[in-house]
């Protein structure tokens, strides 16, 4: 008999029971559906040991790496500490060490922390101000940088947090952060696979991190970044991306504007995802990353899939904004 720890509860898991059986028997409410590993309703995360292989079948590779598993298929092999997704509420503090204007709309915020934190570039964390105001932002740097987190914050019309970050936040300020979440990040392996990355606005932040991660880990396949915005104000880090394209032969960069200002030089004309998806005949075998405007992300996901990319190879992060 093994012990399953979930939050405050300790539950015994009998020989023929799954983690789901054991938790439900103890009246711990765990969402579930098919009970055969198909619907993924009972997705949970192991906080200590690696889950059994059979409990991870069909889960996105980035989530497997983070020890997510399906409770209905998990016959534990040892004691486990588990939680529902995103219920680990460990917070830590980090202080702003740099604030830099990247474009009229976007600032780069660099924070330093002391906590033990594991993350992948491209995941997101919640940033919380002293009064409790909280927003999610993507991590733009790879974890090889010592104890540093970098975020790109776009000023949203009436955005409470973003306006504050742009106008008032000063270096030295302490923010409270959650652990990194999300499955939109780079994993090594399949180094020859071509990568297509499409971002709008500050959707460049996770992609910027993912690209640096991929290049640092020796990704050999071609890497195609399309960054788009309505106007040139929303584009940023242009020189840096062009420099990177000179430095790495397999990295290609296209910046585009979709607004009416076709006269602007240096940028492609059109929507980033349309340019990107029209440029390739087939996406069979490709890995695709989509970050930014929810409508762009959803449309591109469908189009990339229809063009042959397998669903498991599409990593998406839709930036939702709160209605005002």
């Amino acid at each position: 008999m093994l012990n399953i720890t979930c939050g405050e509860s300790n539950v015994a898991c009998l020989a023929n029971e799954t983690v789901l059986d054991a938790l439900l028997k103890a009246n711990i409410p765990i969402p579930y559906g098919c009970r055969q590993g198909v619907c993924q309703s009972c997705l949970m995360r192991s906080l200590d040991v690696t889950p059994p292989v059979a409990a991870q079948i069909g889960i996105k590779d980035t989530l497997q790496k983070q020890n997510y598993f399906l409770a209905c298929c998990c016959h534990p092999e040892q004691d486990m500490t588990v939680s529902l997704p995103d219920q680990q509420d460990t917070w830590f503090e980090a202080s702003v060490i740099q604030k830099q204007q990247l474009s009229p709309e976007i600032i780069r915020l660099t924070l330093q922390y002391n906590a033990e934190l594991s993350f992948f570039a491209g995941q997101f964390v919640n940033l919380q101000r002293l009064d409790g105001l909280t927003r999610s932002y993507s991590i733009a740097n790879s974890s090889r940088h010592e104890k540093i987190l970098e975020f790109h914050i776009r000023r949203l019309p009436n955005g409470q947090f973003s306006s504050w970050a742009h106008d008032e936040l000063q270096p030295g300020t302490t923010l409270t952060l959650t652990e990194a979440r999300g499955s939109c990040h780079y994993l090594p392996g399949r180094a020859q696979q071509p990568l297509l990355l499409i971002g709008t606005g500050s959707g460049l932040a996770p992609l910027y991190g993912i690209i640096h991660d991929a290049l640092a880990q020796g990704h050999a396949g071609s890497i195609h970044l399309y960054h788009g915005s309505r106007n040139s104000e929303g584009l940023y880090l242009i020189d840096e991306m062009q420099e990177l394209a000179k430095q790495y032969a397999n990295f290609n960069y296209t910046a585009s504007v979709s607004g009416a200002c076709a006269t602007e030089t240096g940028f492609a004309q059109g929507r980033a995802h349309e340019l990107a998806l029209n440029a390739v005949q087939s996406l069979k075998g490709w890995r695709v990353y989509l970050c930014g405007h929810p409508e762009m992300v959803n449309q591109s996901k469908r189009m990339a899939y229809i063009k042959g990319a397998s669903l498991g190879d599409i990593y998406a992060d839709a930036f939702l904004t709160l209605p005002h």
Binding site: Q40, K301, Y305, L311
Partner: peptide, 11 residues
């Protein structure tokens, strides 16, 4: 949600 839909198709 495409992942959820694909899971339903599978079922």
């Amino acid at each position: 949600d495409m992942e959820k839909q694909a899971a339903k198709q599978k079922a």
